[in-house]
Design a protein around this nucleic acid. Structure first.
Lengths: 104, 104
DNA sequence: GCTGATATATCGACTATCGATATATCGTTA
DNA sequence: TAACGATATATCGATAGTCGATATATCAGC
């Protein structure tokens, strides 16, 4: 497994990548994440646009069908690999937590 | 739910709290986390001792039966509440990931 | 025309992480 | 007994991520 594919993701970045299975623009990501988490996760503007630039430069997302007012993004194959690995990592956290806290 | 009980935990802090169900010292935490995660999570010294101080000041852990060479710590009731909430948050991340990535 | 929602972007403050560095003790073994 | 690696605590600086505030502009409805 290459290093780049198994970096832990922060919660905002995880939800940004989950939101980009189909093309979506920045503001739409904000709303989508808020809805997905029933209002719990509110991505700040600074986080969002900073994260988008970082994800673009890492090749985890790409620009897609932007018009003059809205820039749309979509996850790349590399981004999907990273996201799948993150899901494994999260399952490990949950399993360890359940085993230790609930004695399973 | 009070604010302090639902702050997202970072991975190192999560594993530090999981390690302190029984009294343990700093270096023991390092080793325990490495073992729990099959070598994947390696908590740096700076992270560990910085996190211990933060957790002490927040009341999530407390000192317990230290001797001159080893300082032992244990999770508090507040810390256990925080850890349980973190487990709920992680399950939400996993469920959202599975639903969106695997169409469940 | 006014207002609020939509939309992108930058800034500074803050926090956490990490590896490097430092110091000291302990047990083994050459 | 001297040397070594493991144990153990602690600080430092570099880096990166998050957040809220601020700024700017467009768009729809009233």
């Amino acid at each position: 497994m290459s290093e780049i594919k198994r970096q832990p993701l922060t919660e905002p970045v995880y939800y940004i990548l989950l939101s980009l299975q189909t093309p979506l623009h920045g503001y739409g990501i904000m709303q989508n994440v808020k809805e997905l988490t029933n209002g719990r996760v509110n991505i700040g503007a600074g986080t969002l646009y900073g994260a988008i630039n970082t994800l673009l430069s890492k090749g985890f997302i790409a620009e897609s069908d932007s018009d003059f007012a809205k820039k749309n993004y979509i996850i790349t194959d590399l981004g999907r690999d990273v996201l799948r690995n993150e899901l494994y990592r999260l399952r490990e956290l949950v399993e360890n937590g359940e085993r230790i806290l609930e004695g399973r």
